[in-house]
């Protein structure tokens, strides 16, 4: 240090300091704000643009060129990236045919294309964002018993007590929740796809959503406590098994018992 100080009066020193300062400012400038952000913005707008292209090709024929929807087709303004990620990511959209409801199937678009579409729809009007991994740590943030209680109050009437799904009116149905990805369940609650109502974050908090997911994952992984589960759909299958297997076996034995031995 002393060595440098000794040279500070050196004529070149002024230029050097000035140069370093300029460099520092220049670097700092690039580091700090505009150009980096510009790159990111650039990437996003690229995704939005890509999404717009996919949208125009694959979605606009129903949802309209500006995603405004029609009397038959819902608008996508304000549905948010989460909704797109759910509908397209589970293959429900684009619709395969005009059934009573869109079914889960192999997605038409890959992950990148889905993300682009989501970015495009989100850019039109603000809506729920796609939850990130940190928001979905149900193992850490969920409470399984609380989740069960919330599930029975809010969800079991459609999806059945063990998330096996159930009937709605006119042939519509609530799908089974077994084996569904955590993110998709979360997004469904957040956005209320199709017949399902919306469970916004202020009515059912994110932590409560994770509790319900934890409960469902628990049921999904629960091993048989009393043997084969018979589908977890209540007494109907039990009655069927009682008649067919139970009474069937007993009648079989009765026939053996009544038959004459050779």
């Amino acid at each position: 240090m002393k060595k440098i100080l000794r040279h500070r009066r050196h004529p070149i020193a002024h230029f050097l300091v000035l140069g370093i300062a300029l460099l520092a400012i220049g670097f700092g400038y690039t580091l700090l704000s505009p150009s980096n952000a510009a790159i990111a913005t650039n990437a996003r707008s690229q995704a939005v643009e890509e999404g717009r292209q996919i949208f125009l090709k694959g979605c606009s024929s129903c949802h309209g060129l500006n995603a405004e929807g029609s009397t038959q087709v819902p608008t996508l303004l304000g549905v948010g990236a989460a909704s797109v990620d759910f509908q397209v990511g589970t293959g429900r959209m684009p619709l395969a045919n005009n059934g009573v409801q869109a079914m889960r199937k192999k997605p038409v678009y890959n992950a990148e294309e889905t993300a682009a579409l989501a970015a495009y729809v989100a850019s039109l009007s603000p809506g729920p964002a796609i939850p990130n991994a940190a928001q979905l740590n149900y193992e850490r943030d969920g409470n399984i018993a609380e989740g069960g209680q919330l599930f029975r109050t809010n969800c079991a009437m459609c999806h059945n007590y063990a998330g096996q799904g159930g009937a709605l009116t006119q042939g519509k149905y609530a799908p089974s929740l077994m084996g569904v990805e955590v993110k998709k369940m979360y997004e469904a609650m957040l956005t209320g796809p199709q017949s399902m109502p919306v469970f916004g974050d202020r009515a059912i908090s994110p932590q409560q959503k994770l509790s319900m997911i934890k409960f469902l994952k628990g049921i999904d992984a629960e091993k048989g406590q009393g043997g084969f589960s018979l589908g977890k759909v209540g007494p109907v299958t039990e009655g069927l098994v009682g008649w067919v297997l139970g009474l069937g076996l007993l009648i079989g034995v009765s026939v053996w018992l009544g038959a004459k031995s050779k």
Binding site: G148, Q149, R152, T153, A156, M157, C158, H159, N160, Y161, A162, G165, G166, A167, A174, I219, G224, Q225, G226, G227, F228, S229, L230, K232, V233, G234, P235, V236, E238, G239, L240, V241, G242, W243, L245, G246
Partner: peptide, 29 residues
């Protein structure tokens, strides 16, 4: 049957609460 086939898994149904309901609420046959 009692050994291999689960019947009336009440731990899954949850305790009774009149404001709750499950899809497919049926009686025995």
């Amino acid at each position: 049957l009692g050994a291999v086939a689960s019947i009336n898994p009440i731990w899954l149904y949850g305790p009774y609460n009149p404001s709750q309901i499950s899809a497919g609420s049926q009686p025995d046959w």
